[in-house]
Design a protein around this nucleic acid. Sequence first.
DNA 1: GTAGATGCAAAGTATTTGCGACAAG
DNA 2: CTTGTCGCAAATACTTTGCATCTAC
Lengths: 136, 136
Amino acid sequence: MSETIEQKCIAKGVKLTDQRKIIAKVMSEANDHPNVDELYNRVSKIDSKISIATVYRTVKLFEESGILTKHEFKGGKARYEELNESHHDHLIDVKSGEIIEFVDEEIEKLQKKVAEKYGYDLVDHKLELYGVKKKS
Amino acid sequence: MSETIEQKCIAKGVKLTDQRKIIAKVMSEANDHPNVDELYNRVSKIDSKISIATVYRTVKLFEESGILTKHEFKGGKARYEELNESHHDHLIDVKSGEIIEFVDEEIEKLQKKVAEKYGYDLVDHKLELYGVKKKS
DNA sequence: GTAGATGCAAAGTATTTGCGACAAG
DNA sequence: CTTGTCGCAAATACTTTGCATCTAC
């Protein structure tokens, strides 16, 4: 827990309103990958007057400021997660929807290699694994 | 070009209407990854009376029948592509939108290994690389 | 002949935006 | 103060659906 979202906002010169502070707090404390609806629900419990438009505007702003990242997993709404130093990819349980974060250095390296092979510099990537729990 | 989409429909017991034949033909001949709008435009040139609802219904049906796959690349509309024996992933030029298909057996293997490490059987995956063309 | 497909327009979702009121720096 | 933000409701973009008609098998 190196730095809160609020601190990141200050560092990046993002104006901190009461609403943004609440959204920042909720996202900082979230251990999952909420979509805007879920985020709105959590935020509403703290301040019921915050509008969903503000939530949309704020996650977009935070994303553009490099504070949150957006995931568009298969067939669902966009989900958000705090962006921090440690990059990771996602393994999604197709039955339960559970999301596991993982890192695999070797895959990372190979991706860069593939991009290079085609004459590209890798600027971003998305790797999602969809699986079912093993019986055994 | 082993088998046309029309042939796949017959093989899978999907009823072939005139509209579906046209959509099948357009997708069979497409070398890119059209979204529903683009597909609707191409299809309309052959039969202007086909409705966009039919295009939506048909791509969904074809997807469920394992004839097409749907891609939801960053920040865009869903794109479709014919599904054939050879699996591949995508490298997307973030400047031009150009899409390059690639296969990397080693990455495939590592993905399966990661899933297994967490106790999962891999049922699907999504790998997208976003890059910019190198200057050199 | 009958189940399923189509066209149309209306209804859903998810998200964005115009605007007057309001608040942060 | 002034610029940017908020809440609201209306607008947009994409996709789905109800229904009466039509068509493949």
